[in-house]
Design a protein around this nucleic acid. Structure first.
Lengths: 327, 327
DNA sequence: TTGAAAGCGCTACCAT
DNA sequence: ATGGTAGCGCTTTCAA
C-alpha cells in the first residue's frame, strides 16, 4: 500500500500538500493539485484510516451490539442501521451479545479501543455504567429515561392486540407474558393486560420463559392443556405465535374459527406461515435507520431536538384473526 | 481515556516498560510489573487498538461481506463467523453488498483502509482483481479454482433432491432453476438435472429470476398454470419453495399427496412452515465457522493443509415429501 | 532489568 | 501557495 509519502515524492511536493488535496483544506494551486491527484491514481493510493483515526482520536466506525443476529427480528434492524451509516461514510463494527452482560461489556470495551465514534446498542441494561461515557450511544429497541433511543410503542401494541382480539369475538383470552427481563415484552404485556382488565372478557395469563422456538413450543402445548377453552391468544412475539399456531393445528383446532392468534413484531416469515399470522408490526428497518440518524447527528454534534423516538406500531391483519363483520 | 504515558507516570516507569508488561515481552521485574498492573487498574487503562494497529500495520479486525443480512440464510453464516473470530480475539467489520460489484468493492476498499487482517466474502466475483491482493481472503458459500473457500456440496444437493423426489414417486417433476449468476444455484440445478435426465421421469425446467419472495410467488403461479400436472417440484431454495407451497395450497393441491416439494438451504423457518418443508440442508453456521477458522490460520500464517472445504449437505425429511414405503 | 528514541501514516500548526 | 515538523499512542530496537 502506497503512503502519503510515496505520493508526495511522486508528485514532487510535501506530504502537507498531499494532505491538503486529500482533505480539501487550505490553499493548493490547481496545477499542484492535479499533479497530486494524478500521482494518487498512479500509485493507487488510499489514505490509511488507522493513521487518520489515531491523529483525530476517532475513527469512522460505528459499533452495533445486538443480542443475536440469528433472531429474525434483528437482521432488519441491523440492515436499517447499516444502510444509513454507510450512506454517511461510516462503517459497522458488529457483535452479538446473547443478552449476556459480560459479552456486551467486552464488545463495548473493544469498540472503544478501536475508537468507534458512536455505538448503537440493543441492551437490557441501558442504565449500566458501561454506557455512562464519553462516546455517543443510542439505545435501540429498548430504552431508559431520556437517553437517545429508538423503540416501538410496545404498550400501545399490546393494547391494540387485545382490542383487535376482543373486537373479533374472543371471549376466553390467553395472554402470553414474555421474559421478565425484557422491557418490551413487559410493556406489550401491560398494554394488553390493561385492555383485557377493563374489557370484561375472561382471560388468563401464562408466562413464557424465552423467545426461542423450542421453549415456545412447550408453552404452547401447556397452554392448550391448561386452557382448552381458550379462543384467543396474544403471543409475546411472532416466534411464540408460530409455536402456538403449530400446536393448535396439531391438536385440530381451526384458526381463526375456534381460536384466534395474534403475534408481535411482524418478522418477515410471519406472512409466510400457514395461516399467515396476524400481528402487531414494529417497523424494524425504520427503527434501525432512525437510530443511525440519531447517532450520526450526535457524532457530528448537531443539535438533537428529539432524542427519544417512539415509533408507531400497527395491526397487520392476516389469517389468524377473524374478519370484522361491518366495516 | 488514559494512555500508556499516564500509566508510565503513575507507575514511575517508562512507557517502554509499560508496553512490556502489556504485551508480556522482554524482561520486567516482578515488582515493577505489579506496580504497572496496579496503575493500569487504577487508571482503568486499556490499550488504544488504533495506535497498535498503526504501528503493527494490521488491526485485529476481520471484514465480512455478505449479500444481504436480511436474507434468512446469511445470519447463520454470519453468526458462525462471528463466534469463531470473537473467540480468537478478533472483531467483525461488516457490510451488505446486495450482490452489487460497486458496493462490494467499496467495502473491500474501506476494510483495507482500516487495515483488516483478513476478509471473508460471499461474492459472485471471487476471480475479480479486487481479491487479488496482499491480504488473506476466504470465500464463503461460493468459490473459485482453489482459493481458500468454504461452500456446500451443491451438486450433490441437487442430486439428492431429485433422487428423493423420484424415490417418493414423483413422475412429472418441475425443476426450478435459480438466478444464472449464482454459482450455487447453477450447481444445484446441474445436479438435479443430471439425475432427472438419467432417470426416465418426465420433467420440465423453469427459471426463477431471483430469490425474493415476491418474484418467487409469480414463478409459483406461472408454474402451476404451465404445468398443472406436475407432481414434484424442486425449488431453487427454501424461499422459492415457500412460495410454491403457498400457491399449491391456494389452488387446492394437497401436499405431499398430489405434489411433493423440496427446498434447499434449510433456513430456520422451513420447519415452521405448514406443512414443514422437506429440504436439502446446508450447515450454514458450521460453514461460517470453518471460514473463520481458515482466515484465522491464514492470519497467523499457519500452514493450511485444506484450503478448499466442501461441506456435506443432507436431506431433511419433513412433510412436503411422502414417506418411503419400506424403510 | 530498564529507558530513550525512532517511527507507523496521517493532520494541523507555524513559517515562509 | 507550499514545506517543515510535532505529535496522535503504541511497539521495538539499541544502549545502558
Amino acid at each position: 500500500m502506497a503512503t502519503i509519502k510515496d505520493v508526495a515524492k511522486a508528485a514532487k511536493v510535501s506530504v502537507a500538500t498531499v494532505s491538503r488535496v486529500l482533505n480539501d483544506t487550505g490553499y493548493v494551486h490547481s496545477d499542484t493539485k492535479s499533479r497530486v491527484t494524478q500521482a494518487m491514481q498512479e500509485l493507487n493510493y488510499f489514505p490509511n484510516e488507522v493513521a487518520r483515526s489515531l491523529f483525530k482520536r476517532e475513527s469512522r466506525l460505528v459499533g452495533l451490539i445486538l443480542p443475536d443476529i440469528t433472531n429474525p427480528f434483528f437482521p432488519q434492524l441491523a440492515r436499517g442501521v447499516e444502510d444509513e451509516i454507510h450512506a454517511n461514510g461510516f462503517r459497522l463494527l458488529f457483535g452479538n451479545s446473547d443478552e449476556d452482560r459480560e459479552k456486551e461489556l467486552a464488545y463495548l470495551q473493544t469498540f472503544k479501543q478501536n475508537q468507534v465514534v458512536g455505538v448503537i446498542a440493543v441492551t437490557n441494561e441501558p442504565e449500566s455504567d458501561m454506557y455512562k461515557d464519553d462516546i455517543p450511544v443510542v439505545f435501540l429497541d429498548r430504552t431508559v429515561s431520556n437517553a437517545p433511543s429508538v423503540f416501538a410503542d410496545a404498550t400501545t401494541g399490546g393494547k391494540i392486540a387485545a382490542m383487535e382480539l376482543i373486537k373479533r369475538g374472543s371471549r376466553q383470552v390467553t395472554l402470553l407474558k414474555g421474559p421478565a427481563h425484557l422491557q418490551t415484552a413487559q410493556q406489550r404485556f401491560r398494554g394488553a393486560l390493561d385492555v383485557l382488565t377493563e374489557s370484561g372478557v375472561d382471560f388468563h395469563v401464562m408466562s413464557t420463559a424465552s423467545f426461542s422456538f423450542q421453549e415456545a413450543r412447550k408453552s404452547a402445548t401447556a397452554l392448550f392443556q391448561l386452557y382448552p377453552e381458550t379462543d384467543g391468544i396474544i403471543a409475546s412475539n411472532d416466534i411464540v405465535a408460530t409455536a402456538v399456531i403449530h400446536e393448535a393445528l396439531r391438536i385440530g383446532k381451526t384458526i381463526p374459527q375456534e381460536v384466534q392468534i395474534i403475534g408481535f413484531d411482524d418478522i418477515p416469515q410471519s406472512e409466510l406461515l400457514f395461516p399467515p399470522l396476524s400481528t402487531i408490526r414494529q417497523p424494524a428497518y425504520d427503527m434501525g435507520q432512525e437510530a443511525a440518524k440519531l447517532i450520526i447527528k450526535a457524532i457530528q454534534k448537531q443539535p438533537i431536538h428529539q432524542p427519544v423516538i417512539q415509533m408507531p406500531v400497527s395491526f397487520i391483519e392476516r389469517e389468524t384473526t377473524r374478519k370484522v363483520e361491518s366495516q
